[in-house]
Write a protein that binds this DNA or RNA. Structure first.
Lengths: 339, 339
DNA sequence: CTGTTAGCGCCTTCAC
DNA sequence: GTGAAGGCGCTAACAG
């Protein structure tokens, strides 16, 4: 990237003249039009961009605390609202001025993000939605900047999350108490850490309660609404309608209902549906029928992440801290309350 | 904010010693434990934070182009996914390394964002979802950094948007062609520029086609699902069920359907429902019934914004440019196709 | 009208 | 083991 010096040299003027022109003070400082044009031409030619870093340094403005948010750029993007809302809440409670830099990354390819390892870019880092592979990588190659992991376990980084396995358990217990015997699971085919723990919790709880889940009743599918709708068609085609279905994420359950609603399958009378609630719970509440979920308080998690980051900034938090939030079962129309 | 110099002074050592310790090279450089502790104590006490700007400047790493995204932090947060997805697409096509800094602001209070006017923070700015007041402000007080407005009109800034009035017109024409005579409008009570243009387009088109919309059939409400559901209750209570309803945003229509579904009002047989589609269109598609929308291609808009910003960065775009995308009517179950 | 210079905070090299 | 000095890109004060 060209610097102001190079521009000055090529234009045959001094750096200060260039600086004046760049900052629209040419008229004020009565720089001749000729000089202005000359300089502007060189700026174009060299594709000069002022360095924000240098400007910041030069200005005496308080340096803000810069937080990089590494967020997996696949389907889970739809959770970004809830996360951002939480981050914002967290920010408001913070006295330090924060710059939030969004860094999308391909799931499974976190290792390509070099800025995690160079100390020049961020004061602190928040990483969301790592895959197993990503998680392994950052534990082998330790990030030298204070880092908070979102809904993951770690010995070396701060973490903020929920008890994923327990969330799965809660879903299972609800279905079992409402009389389900023949249960299917719609899980995500990608190995996302939180999700596999939840499925495990669900599965184990069923087994413990002598509800057998046949392997052919465990579907590994994508996580969009569309995938959910297609999965339902598959179920219908196989004439294999269980009496209850667990969905690893709410988009799946929403798609499921779409297909069921149009195939005269009645929920919850023919099939009960329960889901993990990641989306804004409003959607699940206003669906027809409304969907029973184990709700994950994403906003609270995100807000807590920001608080942890603030604690780190203040040097109030030094060694890795771990917060776990409670999930809550919200019973709605898609399951039967037998109690 | 304390600097490395102050730390050094208070600890009674030189700046380089402090620098070494900060960067975890104390062992390598054999700094005595005593000195380390002394320095670390001072760091704690002063709450020292290294300046990212200074680090960036010192490192020879390429300075990235910093874009500030000013995004209104109210309900429209839920569009952030779609926008971010578009931004990401736009970024991928860009060769310049981009830092995307998220700057939430309170709608109507854009003037509090001082960083818009200090040239030290961003190379370019994207502003989304201004209110009328915000828009006035930034046109009276011109931002001295290349700025793109999202879905707004301007003579002095770049803009990327849709023809909002035409979008409203399209919705009206569809309802009229499907035989609607008695139409209600559910509009947003806040004066959001894009929304009022759309409502105007809708209203004018109805009038032109001799469909009178009574004032009492125009509801100004909030824009959440919940607000939509409540509005529907209001309609029912007033025994004033029109034969078609226009919703200014899709959350409203989703809430509407929730209430109708539970009150034995059949859509589209009793009432047709059409909406402007801002949310991920998946939701509208998978609702019961699925919702007819005039779809706004948010992702495309956002991607184009990033392209404009790139053009500005390259000096390929100099004077204000304006892009307008087409909206498209997507007919679904909530309206009747009479053609 | 334009050029010279000092210094923002930090890190690296070199010297002691 | 530690300190002094230079320079990253930029702007403002001052000098001509």
């Amino acid at each position: 990237m060209a610097t102001i010096k190079e521009v000055a040299k090529l234009a045959g003027v001094s750096v200060s003249t260039v600086s004046i022109i760049i900052n629209n003070k040419a008229d004020e400082r009565k720089i001749s039009l000729e000089t202005q044009n000359k300089v502007n031409d060189v700026i174009m030619k060299l594709n000069y961009q002022p360095s924000v870093a240098a400007k910041k340094l030069r200005s005496n403005e308080q340096d803000s605390y810069t937080v990089g948010i590494f967020w997996a750029s696949d389907f889970r993007a739809s959770y970004l609202n809830r996360i951002m809302i939480g981050i914002q809440d967290g920010m408001l409670q913070t006295k330090i001025p924060l710059d939030i830099v969004i860094c999308p990354y391909d799931p499974g390819k976190l290792h390509l993000q070099k800025k995690l390892y160079n100390r020049n870019s961020y004061n602190a880092i928040l990483i969301a939605n790592t895959t197993e592979k990503d998680n392994e990588y950052i534990h082998k190659n330790v990030i030298p900047i204070p880092t908070v992991l979102y809904n993951r376990k770690s010995d070396i980084y701060h973490t903020v999350g929920i008890d994923n396995e327990l969330a799965g358990r809660k879903a299972a217990l609800h279905l079992i108490s409402s009389g389900a015997k023949n249960i299917a699971m719609l899980c995500h085919k990608q190995k996302i850490l939180g999700m596999t723990s939840r499925s495990k919790g669900f599965y184990d709880t069923c087994i413990e309660n002598r509800i057998h889940i046949d392997e052919k009743n465990i579907y590994n599918i994508g996580a969009t609404i569309h995938d959910g709708a297609e999965a339902a068609k598959e179920l219908l085609k196989n004439k294999n309608i269980p009496d209850a279905i667990y969905c690893d994420s709410d988009s799946i359950s929403q798609g499921l209902l779409y297909t069921f609603n149009r195939s005269n399958i009645s929920v919850p009378d023919d099939v009960q549906v329960i889901s993990i609630g990641m989306e804004n719970s409003e959607y699940n509440k206003f669906f027809t029928p409304s969907i029973t979920v184990v709700d994950i308080p994403l906003e609270k998690l995100a807000a807590k992440c920001m608080q942890v980051i603030e604690g780190v900034a203040n040097h109030k938090i030094t060694s890795p801290t771990h917060f776990e939030f409670e999930t809550s079962l919200i019973q709605r129309e898609s399951t039967i309350n037998k109690i």
